[in-house]
Design a protein around this nucleic acid. Structure first.
Lengths: 240, 240
DNA sequence: GCCTCTCCGTGACGGAAGTCACAGTGGCGC
DNA sequence: GCGCCACTGTGACTTCCGTCACGGAGAGGC
């Protein structure tokens, strides 16, 4: 192992990797793991690096060993939409690699990340030879579909921006909220602008709706932590 | 084989099935095909049958051997959104079956269909034992993700209903349009209401926009066939 | 200290499109 | 034929929210 300027070790070898847990794509048997290790190249990226850009031919897949990355799509006039945030353990670009189609999103790290990259041909060979890994791919893709469908539901079926925002906050509560005395506490790791890109509205609308929710006592915000006082009120706003 | 009242044979046996071509999920080797055959049950449904409903536990997967089906999601207030139309050769409910999560959409046949059904446990067993089939599943799921992402782009990134409708018409041209003397001919197999559910707007808006396009000479409609005279104008409306 | 930049907060305005209401039209059963 | 029903076509009204514009706060950089 080498050390890195990002506060964590660079793992060169999958077998001795300490990041992995059993929710990871690479939670594989010894033989498959070794093959994955040999087919892939490790590297470390600072936050804000672009791993690949929407529309590029899919040259390979990217395993996030550590860190988080933001997937987004953009229209020609510059508007952009964040499709999701990928966490450690996920394999990115796998759908495009399998179909040999262009990447559908742009991926940008939002914190320092350790990444392993596998070339498309080698990846296909790898999963054709290791049934276990192939099954893991079906799981990864199922999760992606699931997420995408939720996003479609939110974008296509909601009546108002408040509904979408309420939906998003509730999802955040479930995934990373911590119960406290006055309600559920949440770290906001996104700016209003990014939130607006997540739910497909404008930055101002997000600010206004949050202001209104604050006024109605549903939640309060101090610095980057948000406290949800009245979860029921949020749920009532969502008819999805 | 038995005959059916729907104008096609009921195929009981995958090995002798004439519907299949090599784009089908079940385009598999003899051994895997036999296993799939034994694990699955064939049935025929008339148009308008519901195969499964959103929110149900995923009891299994459904292979469309012949026919088409409409996938949709609904909100509590009755509004519904068509996510896509699945064709023969597709396997439905795979993502949910693999994750053991509830179905995310409601599936309704839109014409008489031959379907094979496999129970969840047997399906998982089947793909774990047949690497070839497992790889086919990754392909199927990759396609689903691809579609879903396109839909997200259209719903989240477009500025107007006209843009979404133009996008949809262009997609139809590419997928089933036939070039004619006056432009690309297209069979409309959907009502305005269904179109509106596909792009997430109201029925009236679809009618109005189509009317406007007709007025501007971009297209013309007679009965259920639409002719696109000015493809460039449609493309100019789309900034996606 | 000051300058710059990004982010948050608000007001005013206008336009796109959802909603409601109703009229016409064409197919189908009988 | 007649009635029924689903679909299409239009008009009027209203609301949500995107856009533009600006002010202020906080975080670096130097």
């Amino acid at each position: 192992m080498r050390s890195s300027p990002y506060g964590f070790e660079i793992v060169e070898n999958c077998s001795s990797c300490s990041f992995r847990d059993d929710t990871f794509f690479c939670s594989l048997g010894a033989a498959a793991l070794k093959a994955f290790d040999q087919a892939s190249v490790a590297s470390v990226y600072p936050g804000g690096s672009v791993l690949y850009v929407e529309g590029q031919a899919a040259r390979g897949v990217f395993m996030i060993c550590r860190g988080k990355a933001k997937l987004s799509i953009a229209s020609r006039d510059g508007k952009s939409l964040i499709t999701r945030v990928a966490h450690a353990g996920e394999l990115l670009g796998v759908g495009s690699a399998i179909l040999d189609a262009p990447y559908q999103a742009t991926v940008e790290t939002i914190e320092p990340c350790q990444i392993r990259h596998v070339k498309r041909e080698e990846f296909i060979k790898f999963i054709r030879e290791h049934a276990d890994a192939c099954y893991r791919v079906t799981e990864q893709l199922s999760h992606e579909c699931h997420n995408a469908n939720d996003h479609i539901r939110s974008l296509g079926l909601s009546h108002s921006a408040s509904e979408k925002l309420a939906h998003l906050i509730l999802a955040w509560c479930d995934e990373s909220g911590r119960e406290g005395a006055t309600g559920t506490r949440l770290k906001m790791m996104m700016t209003h602008h990014e939130v607006s890109q997540l739910i497909g509205t404008s930055r101002e609308t997000v600010t206004r709706i949050l202001g209104e929710m604050r006024e109605r006592g549903i939640l309060s915000i101090r610095g980057s932590t948000m406290v949800i006082h009245n979860r029921a009120a949020l749920e009532a706003m969502v008819l999805l």
